[in-house]
């Protein structure tokens, strides 16, 4: 991937707390170097409506928990060369997947959140994407090329993986894959 042109990078935010995006930004001054090599073509921190074509690297935060997210990730996979699971939610399911141990967890979790613990006007929201029966890590839906676990992952590791990939090398995750 050593080209004269900047690499086209995207980030996606699924069921996650945005902590992994914070971590990405936490690269601080390393971002300045990175900005020389990449062009951010799609991201919750950039105002782009449709996931573009020909993306080189996509970083995905969060678990796949509803039908919109499932569609989104499959769409993005088709348009991306390298897909990276960023953070525990994308890698393992993590907190969004805690509901998976419940029976009919999609209904149960909505009931708990919007009925049982509601102070006023208890009602289950409609006209929003429907929850999947379970929350899943990314690689249960699409092929994932690299994984960066952590909750959130250390920004140094995020930088390491991106830098290695941009240099055309395979990152070695030994000592860099701490969950939690």
């Amino acid at each position: 991937m050593v080209t004269a042109e900047k690499a086209r990078v995207a980030t996606i935010w699924l069921s996650g707390c945005s902590g992994c995006h914070m971590t990405f930004l936490d690269q601080d001054e390393a971002l300045i170097d990175l900005a020389k090599k990449i062009q951010l073509v799609y991201s919750p921190i950039a105002d782009v409506k449709v996931f573009p074509e020909n993306v080189d690297v996509t970083l995905v935060e969060g678990a796949v928990a509803n039908d919109h997210q499932e569609e989104m990730i499959k769409f993005a996979r088709e348009r991306t060369k390298i897909l990276i699971s960023l953070g525990d939610c994308a890698v393992t399911g993590n907190v969004p997947a805690l509901r998976n141990a419940w029976v009919k967890s999609d209904e149960a979790v909505l009931k708990r959140a919007y009925i049982e613990t509601a102070d006023v006007n208890p009602q289950i929201p409609t006209e929003v994407p429907e929850l999947l029966p379970k929350a899943h890590p990314l690689h249960e839906f699409v092929k994932v090329d690299y994984y960066i676990p952590g909750c959130p992952p250390p920004s140094g590791v995020v930088n390491y993986v991106i830098t290695e990939l941009l240099a055309g090398r395979t990152p070695n995750m030994e000592g860099k894959s701490k969950y939690g």
Binding site: D88, V95, V144, Y146, P149, N172, G175, K178, G180
Partner: peptide
Amino acid sequence: THVCSVCVANNACELQKLADELGVDH
């Protein structure tokens, strides 16, 4: 059910440490 981020043993866990050392990234 191993969810490190909400576990009492986070950062004091031998399984978590092994995963890290061995590079079990998923």
